[in-house]
Amino acid sequence: MLQVEQLTVRYGPLTIVDRLSFALEEGCWLMVVGPNGAGKSTLVGAISQCIHYTGRISFQGKDLARLKPREVARNLGVLMQNHCVGYDFTVEEIVRLGRYAYGDGLMTGGKEDEQKVAEALALTGMERLRKQKVTTLSGGELQRTFLAQVLAQDPRLLILDEPTTHLDQPYHKQVFELIGRWVKQPGRAVLSVVHDLSLASAYGTHALLMEKGRKVADGTVEEVLTPQHLWQAYGMDVHHWMCSLLGQWEKPQAARPVFSQAGERRLKQ
């Protein structure tokens, strides 16, 4: 589905991503992991055509750099980690912008737009807040607003750059489970940058481990997130440290259902 070949990104004399190649197949959830400064967010920027790169990134055989922005957006949806909206748009206005790629000039997609927007609001539990100004939302609500926008965009590949940075634990779980079900529908895949290796191993099907712009390992989560690879990338025994932390951890209570049941049902259908 997504093919990255010899991807290189340079900022002046610095090489941030160095001849990186990997592929992502339909139905997969690829977790991009690695220490700070490994080039994970830069990789996301290159795939989403936001920064200049050399090499080739193709989606379903087509070179992404040659596609029109609207075509790219119909295939790729991106959720960033930080959002700062300067003006007080309503939640619904932000989510509706997700349908931009399906409009043609001044015309909008009509009924289908309405349906997708309503569905996205329901799935993310933002229905109740649809008329609220985004400047009055909490960090978590704001992130869910943009998650709803990207779901309304209805892309085939969802790219997430640390999607749960501003979310508390129950939302962490809900978002990852929501995306886990989303990716199971035919013709879809997810690529996400995560820092939390336990989340990566729990939800990802595949992983790409990076260090200083280069690939350390890629493959299934089990193949990649081994103590040896992690030692190589992080320079410490992350695996042991995490196990020791988890050993001290009490089993957490079940998360309260934060997303609306209607949305959940719609997704299951």
Binding site: C50, R70, H83, C84, V85, Y87, I94, Y100, Q153
Partner: peptide
């Protein structure tokens, strides 16, 4: 006036505008 939708996208954020398909 024909660019009102694009301006909304820019007002939300330039990166976001690019991600939703605006030819920035």
């Amino acid at each position: 006036l024909c660019h009102a939708r694009e301006l909304n996208a820019f007002a939300v954020g330039e990166d976001n505008a690019r991600h939703i398909g605006v030819d920035v």
